[in-house]
């Protein structure tokens, strides 16, 4: 098993780096700074960190106001509140005028395993990618978090940043050139293409290794940017394989799977299967692995999906 690292800590450290580079960077928080790690920025730059109290809607529109006078605000809270509770503010105050606001949806997916349905956000990619102007990123590990964050000063328009709460295996190649919108080939293979993001990328790599032992050659594509999706790259990676599997820590409705098949519309492609949450809410569990296993978000599930989808 490879080294594991916290994506939240990587995010907090990256915020501080951005703060050193640009005085325009400011952060807003809704009393979850110890979870999101925006507190690291607040400690370093107290005059540029605004605690907004437990009021996410006001925080989102306030971020819009800050962007309108030239700041680059990062507002931080759990994904459920950023993309859910403040959806209308994100849409109208931020996305319509295409403002340079960075929205950190932390503790996304099922990663807040103990807190159950109300805190587990598995609809956020569907909500956020439906918005015109919005960029949606979902890094797979701490390395990708750092590389993604390094783009946040220059990239125009609003960005939704999906951050997992837990320490995850480090799989993204340190030397890989990163840019927003890029699909990263994590492993080559001839028979099957597995598209994944976030926590599922490492699981897809595990599945590919297992399948190799069974004579199935699987390539793993990390789709760290859900939107804008590199359609040409998706079509290219999907061509020539005999099965396609998309793995995501998200409802199978409207997330990465939907985005991949939208990209493949009008193109003849191999049969496709999704590994994701099947149109239901989350649940509390003792730990992350138990919960992921319960919802079938495992490397075994990817192996099964590949076998099921691969024509005999």
């Amino acid at each position: 098993m490879s080294e594991v690292k916290s994506l939240r800590v990587a995010y907090g450290e990256a915020l501080v780096e951005l703060g050193k580079k640009s005085d325009a960077v400011v952060t807003l928080e809704a009393d979850l700074g110890k979870s999101t790690q925006s507190i690291m920025f607040g400690t370093e730059f107290p005059d540029r960190h605004f605690e907004m109290g437990i009021a996410e809607q006001n925080m989102a529109s306030t971020a819009a106001g800050l962007a309108l006078v030239g700041k680059i605000p990062f507002f931080n809270t759990f994904a459920i509140f950023a993309a859910g509770r403040a959806f209308d503010q994100v849409r109208n105050s931020i996305c319509v005028p295409n403002l340079k606001v960075r929205i950190c949806g932390s503790s996304a997916g099922l990663s807040d395993f103990g807190d159950g349905k109300t805190h587990q956000m598995i609809e956020d990619m569907a909500l956020m990618r439906a918005l015109p102007h919005m960029t949606v990123v979902c890094p797979c590990d701490a390395v990708e978090v750092k590389k993604m964050m390094a783009c946040m000063l220059d990239w125009d328009g609003p960005v939704y940043i999906r951050i997992n709460r837990n320490d995850l295996p480090v799989v993204y190649p340190e030397n890989e050139r990163y840019h927003i919108g890029k699909v990263t080939k994590m492993r080559d293979g001839a028979d099957v293409a597995v598209f994944a993001c976030g926590v599922m990328t490492a699981k897809a790599l595990e599945a590919a290794a297992e399948l190799e032992g069974e004579g199935v050659s699987v390539k793993v594509l990390n789709v760290g940017t859900i939107k804008p999706l590199d359609r040409e790259a998706i079509i290219e990676h999907a061509s020539g394989v005999r099965a396609i599997v998309v793995a995501e820590e998200h409802t199978i409705i409207g997330g990465l799977g939907g985005a991949i098949l939208e990209a493949l519309r009008g193109v003849k492609h191999a049969p496709a299967e999704f590994v994701g949450v099947e149109d239901t809410f989350g649940a509390s569990a003792e730990n992350y692995d138990i919960l992921m296993n319960h919802f079938g978000l495992t490397s075994d599930a990817i192996v099964s999906a590949v076998k099921k989808t691969l024509p005999a």
């Binding site: 006001n58 529109s61 306030t62 106001g65 800050l66 503010q89 105050s93």
Partner: peptide, 12 residues
């Protein structure tokens, strides 16, 4: 939403 936006502007 406008008052919140105005607050953000004033703060910035």
């Amino acid at each position: 939403q406008g008052l919140s936006i105005a607050c953000g502007m004033a703060l910035g």
